[in-house]
């Protein structure tokens, strides 16, 4: 039996050494109540806490104040218990208060006799990857903004050259950007130039019509320009009805029409105002 004990002790030491060798991951055991039972070197490197500081503490010491208040730790343990596993990515807090983006896997441990024996929790610091993702997202947004420019081509006339394929995300941005500009510049006419759009399908047309409707509600009239013969054919075959919207073949013609419309509106305004008030 003594030999067995030595082997067991040796095996335990080996296990501990192995866990401590994992420096990139925090690998810890939690008791059934969520209190920290074991600690490894990876945990120390990641959170800044030593074993003495955390053993016996509740696992929520690594959580943000908000997560603590919402009882995230309890929910995690419950999910792991019920589903056999819990996976999560989110912000956690180091000893010095710094936040890190953690990838967490929580698994319940069942003892040999079938009773719950707590949990094993593996945590990895993915802050760098997260920052990279955020950077990419920002870049994507910047590119998106660059790809939907609104140009003031004349007093009261905005032009929106649409280039490339319009998906729903881009279309939403485009609508938003255009309406903001209409509000800021109080432009009365908007020229939507679609000569740079490779194909007009029903969805793209729907997006454009919605944009036009929203602009109309704000009080700006829209002119479509740059409709190529094949686009015109496609639109008619798809049964796309542009309603009252005016359309011109080139941006030049569209601008001419815009100036004419502004002139007409100005004379109507002169009529509306008694002499001398303007």
């Amino acid at each position: 039996m003594a030999g067995q004990d030595v082997t067991d002790t040796q095996r335990l030491r080996d296990l501990e050494a192995m866990l401590d060798a994992i420096t990139d991951y925090k690998v810890i055991k939690l008791g059934p109540d969520g209190n920290i039972a074991t600690w490894n070197r990876g945990g120390e490197l990641l959170t800044g806490y030593s074993a003495g500081e955390v053993i016996g503490q509740h696992v929520s010491i690594f959580y943000t104040e908000e997560d603590k208040r919402s009882g995230l730790a309890e929910r995690e343990l419950q999910t792991a218990r019920e589903a056999g596993r819990f996976e999560f990515e989110g912000w956690r807090v180091r000893k010095d208060g710094e936040h890190f983006w953690a990838s967490v896997i929580l698994t319940p441990i069942v003892d040999a006799d079938g009773t719950p024996g707590g949990y094993v929790k593996v945590t990895r610091d993915l802050t760098e990857r997260r920052e990279q993702e955020l950077r990419l997202e920002r870049q994507r947004e910047e590119i998106m903004e660059l790809s939907t420019p609104v140009i003031q081509v004349w007093d009261g006339v905005l032009a929106l050259p649409i280039i490339g394929t319009l998906d729903s995300v881009r279309a939403a941005r485009l609508t938003e950007g255009l309406l903001e500009r209409i509000g800021d510049s109080q432009a009365q006419i908007v020229i939507l130039d679609i000569s740079g759009v490779p194909t007009i399908d029903t969805q793209v047309a729907q997006h454009l019509l919605k944009t036009v409707q929203a602009a109309t509600l704000m009080g700006a009239a829209s002119i479509l320009s740059g409709v190529r013969p094949e686009t015109a054919q496609a639109m008619v075959h798809l049964g796309i009805d542009i309603g009252q919207m005016k359309s011109r073949n080139t941006l030049r013609d569209a601008l001419q029409l815009a100036l004419q419309m502004i002139h007409e509106r100005a004379s109507a305004r002169a009529m509306a105002m008694p002499l001398g008030t303007e």
Partner: peptide, 28 residues
Amino acid sequence: PAVAITLVELGVPMGHLDTALNAEQGLA
């Protein structure tokens, strides 16, 4: 702008409403 988008998304028929950007253009 946000109101215009909402109205279009809601699909409320507003086609018969005459609209203008501001009071001055509204008078015209």
